[in-house]
Simulated scan of single mutants.
Amino acid sequence: MSRTVLITGATGTVSTALMRALQGTGVNLRALVRAKSGADGPRELGAEVFVGDLDDARSLPPAFEGVQDVWLLTPNGPRAPENGMNAVWAARQAGVERVVRLSVVGAAHDAPNRSGRLHALSDREIERCGMRWTILRPHWFMQNLLNEAGDISATGTFSLNMASARIGMIDVRDIAECAARVLLDDPDRHHGETYTLTGPRSLTFDEVAAQLGLALGRPVTYLPVGDDARRGTLLGHGVPEWIVDMLEEYARAYASGWGDLTTGTVVALLGRRPRDLADFARDHATAFAPAGERVTVESG
C-alpha cells in the first residue's frame, strides 16, 4: 500500500523541489497551502491540495488525516516554534508515523542567530514527539544567490554583508533529494538521526562571483558592504524587519567563520557528490544574464 506524504510549506523553494523529487516514486503526495491561490503549483506536481495554516491549529486536521509521513517546514518568523507545535499536534492526533523536519545548520540553544535558537526549540520537540523522526539541517542555499540576479544581470556585481565569509553552501535540489531519500526509505532506517547537509566545499563570495562569471562568459564581481547598507537595501525591497534582523545575525556569524564547514552526509544518503557551485551556476545562468542575452557556458 502506498504511503501518503504531507508536504508543508508546499509553495516554497525546498518543498517544491521535494515534490519534484518524489514524483513517480509511488507515494501519494498531499500538499498544505495557506490559501486556494497557492494550490496550482503543488497540484501540477501531482499533489492533492488541502488549505490550512500552521498559525491556526484548528485548520490542520483534515490535511493530516490518513497521512503516514509529514515533511515539516515552518516559515521563518517569531512564531516558528508555535507553527511546528501545531503541526506536531495535528500529526499525533491523526496517527502519523513519521515526521521529517527541515531545520537549519547550527541549530542550537546558543546559536548566534535567532533562527538557529528557534529551530533548536522545534528540533527538541520533534525528538520527543513520540513518532519516528528525522531532522535535516541544511547549510546556506545556493538558490539564495538568485536574489542577487537582478543586480548581476544589470551591473555584473552583487553586494552582501558577508565580508570574506567562507560557507559550505548547498544546492536546494540536493536538500530535496536527501529528504526524498529519507521519506522513501523504511521509517526505521533514519529514525532519531539529525543530518547536517552541505555542499562539497566551502566558498567565499569572490569564488562564487568567479564561478558565476564563467557560467555567463563575462566578469561578475562581489562587493562586500556593511550591515547598514544591506539593511537599507532589504528594507527598501519590503523585507520584514524581523527577517532583516535575522539575516544580519547570520551575516555576522558567517563573517566570523561560523559557516566554514562541510560534511559527507549528502554522499552517504545519495551515493554521489553534492552539486558544486559551478553546477548551480551553469544550470541557472539564464537567470543572471541580461534579458535576451545568449549565455555561452564555459567549463571551469
Rank of each mutant, 00 (worst) to 15 (best):
P112Y: 00
T296R: 15
T196F: 09
G292V: 08
A35Q: 14
A94G: 10
D69P: 02
S153A: 14
D174C: 15
E207W: 10
T4R: 13
L214Y: 13
D279G: 05
V225W: 05
D227T: 04
M246P: 00
Y250F: 13
R92I: 05
Q211N: 05
A120N: 11
L214W: 14
A10I: 03
E293D: 15
G156I: 13
T134A: 04
H119P: 03
V220F: 07
T204C: 01
S299W: 12
E127P: 01
A35D: 12
V104M: 04
Q93I: 06
A287V: 12
T8L: 11
D171R: 11
M142L: 13
D56Y: 12
K36A: 12
T4P: 03
W242L: 05
S115Y: 09
L54I: 04
L234S: 04
G46T: 10
A94V: 12
H284Y: 15
L269N: 08
V33G: 01
L235F: 13
I152F: 02
R275T: 07
V51D: 02
P112W: 02
T74I: 14
P78M: 09
Y222C: 11
T204G: 03
F205R: 00
M142A: 09
H190D: 07
T196L: 12
T25N: 07
R101H: 15
D227Y: 01
L102W: 02
G300T: 11
W71H: 12
T196P: 03
E148H: 11
V105Q: 06
M142Q: 06
V51L: 06
E65K: 15
G150Y: 10
P62H: 10
T11V: 12
G257E: 05
A57L: 08
D174M: 12
G232M: 11
A255Q: 00
S115L: 15
V100M: 03
A165W: 00
E48K: 02
R231S: 08
Y195D: 05
R181N: 12
M19E: 01
G226C: 13
E207D: 12
A39V: 11
Q143D: 04
C129W: 00
H191A: 14
I170D: 02
M131W: 03
R117N: 03
A149N: 03
R272H: 13
V208Y: 04
L146W: 08
S59F: 03
R30E: 03
G46Q: 08
C129L: 02
T263G: 06
L22P: 02
P61C: 09
T286S: 14
E125K: 14
F205N: 01
R294Y: 13
D186C: 06
N113S: 10
A47L: 01
G77H: 08
A287C: 13
A87V: 10
A278P: 05
A229W: 08
L184R: 08
S2H: 09
D53P: 04
P112K: 01
R273L: 11
A285D: 04
A229N: 11
N86F: 02
A281W: 02
P42D: 06
E82T: 14
